[in-house]
């Protein structure tokens, strides 16, 4: 293949999330150049370095300030509830389901992003399973009743409220101390990110009911994409497809690693903790389905509207009920 000299500019994700150093940076700065004999190169910076909060990435891509960029779907769920579609709380307990859901809903999101932001969706990927970290005993879902729970997005808030919990919003950086001091009783985040942020030091019980996968997307400003040579476009499409598979496998590995580290099991990259891993009761899995149907989906339908809900039912809904 013949690749013209091309320099890509990439806004990567959070430097603190393992995926940035392990996967994003090598992909853009090593793999692409080595596949193209050094003709396609890229510079990448993390959100932290730019002092960004995440949500503005979509808009900055729309303006053309950023060409290639990544951001969490949840950050712009306010702009359009469709962003919640592939990650409604409680719909995918395991990563295989999450992947199927993600693939099924991808065309809908690609269309939305092109219309709304003028950006081309390149891939959808998870961080890891989002679970409950509590600083006191919790045996089942019903124990959330009356507890103050920090939630990171609306659909998890709906789920927690459905279970009778009190939802609290606060910056990620304040969660550790708030858990330690009892400002809140539980908080939801990924198994690995909670472990790397030291949540296992301030909580005692890890309740592993997965209420989401915190999906991210990689996209590119459509005009910037048009300017690329067809060979480079083809290369990027193919390589990002492979990358997507890798990131999903890495998500599964990180989920397991984080869970194991926090609860005193085998631990290589994380920090070993001594939390109690609460076994997931069969009754809770059933109660979860009820909450998903009665609360999570009902509220999502309200936010999202009829057409959006119909599309969701055809894609994700059909898949979930088939399971």
């Amino acid at each position: 293949q013949d690749y013209p000299k091309t320099e890509l500019s990439v806004q990567g994700g959070w430097a603190t999330a393992g995926i940035y150093q392990e996967i994003e940076v090598p992909f853009w700065t090593e793999r692409l150049p080595s596949l193209t004999g050094g003709n396609v190169t890229a510079s990448i910076t993390s959100l932290n370095e730019k002092g960004l909060k995440g949500p503005e990435v979509f808009r900055l891509m729309r303006m053309g300030v950023i060409d290639f960029g990544t951001s969490a779907l949840g950050y712009v769920a306010g702009d359009d509830p469709q962003n919640e579609g592939p990650d409604l709380a409680g719909i995918a307990l395991d990563i295989e389901t999450a992947r199927k859901v993600s693939d099924a809903y991808k065309p809908a999101l690609a269309k939305l992003y092109m219309e709304k932001y003028g950006i081309k969706l390149l891939m959808l990927y998870p961080t890891e399973a989002q679970v409950f970290w509590c600083n006191g005993p919790i045996e089942s879902l019903s124990d959330l009743r009356g507890k103050k729970v920090r939630t990171g997005n609306r659909t998890v808030a709906d789920f927690v409220e459905g279970a009778g919990g009190v939802t609290v919003t606060m910056p990620f950086g304040e969660v550790v101390t708030s858990l330690q001091l009892g400002v809140i009783d539980c908080a939801v985040t990924g198994t690995f990110s909670g472990n790397s942020a030291g949540w296992h030091e301030v909580t005692t019980h890890l309740y592993p009911l997965t209420v989401g996968w915190s999906p991210f997307m990689y996209a590119v400003n459509a005009k910037a994409w048009e300017k690329l040579a067809p060979s480079v476009q083809a290369l990027l499409t193919e390589e990002m497809g492979k990358l997507e598979d890798e990131v999903w496998s890495a998500g599964a590995a990180r989920t397991a690693e984080g869970l194991s580290c926090a609860t005193g099991g085998e631990c290589i990259f994380g920090k070993k903790g001594a939390m109690t891993l609460v076994p997931l009761a069969e009754a809770d899995v059933e109660l979860r389905s009820k909450l998903v149907n009665d609360v999570v989906l009902a509220r999502f339908a309200q936010r999202c509207g009829d057409a959006c809900m119909a599309e969701w039912n055809e894609t994700v809904g059909a898949l979930i009920s088939a399971d």
Partner: peptide, 22 residues
């Protein structure tokens, strides 16, 4: 101003329970 009109065009709302029209 640009940011405000963008918010208007894309119907941006905050990602919180309030969902404020930005």
């Amino acid at each position: 101003l640009d940011s405000t009109t963008t918010s208007f065009e894309i119907g941006a709302r905050s990602n919180t329970p309030l969902g404020v029209t930005l």
